[in-house]
Design a protein around this nucleic acid. Sequence first.
RNA 1: GGCCCCAUCGUCUAACGGUUAGGACAUGAGCUUUUCAAGCUCAGAACCGGGGUUCGAUUCCCCGUGGGGUCACCA
Length: 434
Amino acid sequence: MKSNVVTRIAPSPTGEMHIGTVRTALFNYIFAKQNGGTYFVRIEDTDRERNKPEWVEAIWRDFTWCGLEPDAKYVQSANLERHKELLKKLVAEGKAYVSREPKKDDPSQEVEVVRLKNPGTTITFVDLIRGEVTFDTTEHGDFVIARSLEDPLYHFAVVADDGDAKVTHVLRSEEHISNTPRQILILEALGFKRPVYAHFPLILAPDRAKLSKRKHGASVGNYQKQGFVPEAILNYVALLGWNPGGEQEVFTLSELTKLFSMERVHKGGAIFDIQKFTWFNFEHLKRLSDAEYEKRLREFSQQDFDARLVPLIKERAQTLVEAAELLKEYDFMTSVSYDPGLLLNKGKTGKDDASKHLQAVQGLIEGVADEDFTAVRIKDTVMPYAEQEGRGAVLWPLRVALSGKEKSPDPFTIAALVGKAQALVRIAQALKSF
RNA sequence: GGCCCCAUCGUCUAACGGUUAGGACAUGAGCUUUUCAAGCUCAGAACCGGGGUUCGAUUCCCCGUGGGGUCACCA
């Protein structure tokens, strides 16, 4: 059953989607879902000079990528005719007037602007997060609501659109709290029903200033490039200014949708911590199935790889960028080449010892049945010998023989991965290089 | 500057008058398949200040201080 709850997120297309926009969108999405209502996206493109059409497409894409697909979406400029109609109505009713005055940034020119007749009242509105908030609106005077009868400004367009769309809950970030009384003034002149407001605390940069796309790279696209997954973005931003109270921190979107409550939203701003964000990313990456992980890594890295590498990479890469780097590093699936010095742990292990241990291990591995050639089995077979002779002395040359690398997963895992025959080939090859 | 909002470890936060102020990230130490990670164990780390209210304040009230937002013919 559909309720009458309608929420919306209204980003402006002045660049890539801000990470704060994602959080606001998420809360709007969740709030609508919890109340059986609808949530839509409206792109605020009324400033024709600053907005670029290519960003509009990018924003739609980001919403989809994040998993916050709206019930409806449109651009504000599509409603221009309706805005003009409403503007004229206001003037006709004497609630606004056209004024000829010198242009602000160029006083030599005279322009026509539309001003709202401000009754100069004190406005008190209910904010779901802060309670009652009161402003004296006299300081705004008869403020400008349109550049001309043909060209409405932001506050007017927002109110007109929200009114027409029957938005019941305006959930947005705190920077708009001071704008709210002006919008209420316009709304009352227009005769629309007042929505309920809620202003979320800001997401801050480490220097406590508003987190910015330009200065801090805080855009969805940027984090996507850095190898973050949408699950982690949603989870992390949700916890910036809100938390469900328990000690669990890793949540899926559907869990967040179940748990979210406006009462638990904070009032103070929260600093965006890339390290904790990265940890969330790691947690969500680990929770992906191997198949899903493989799919995403292929898409992200644009390179082919052996799918058997997935479990190894999954347990160490915190981002897809790191995963792609490991992919390049883990090239031991098909063949290896040795640096004899590395085989001897750069001289720390004696040649005779290394050779002796490798031969011993060779024999042990030969003894493991083909059908039993698992990492656990190999480990059980080799470890007693390694314990006896010294783990490092035995395991280091073995690992290098199998991987060809200074850094790699443990030797048993690699042996199991490449198979018995190949493992033995590599050990023999290493033996010959002494 | 006016107006508005806010204030617990470095960071995100729990606590809704009585707790050794809890958790997570990060940091440090140790253990582990002498590598790289992961994992595990442990450690250090906070109630902005001052007044009230109260038997008792991190918690409620006031003031101060600090931080932030906003004051466009941008959104």
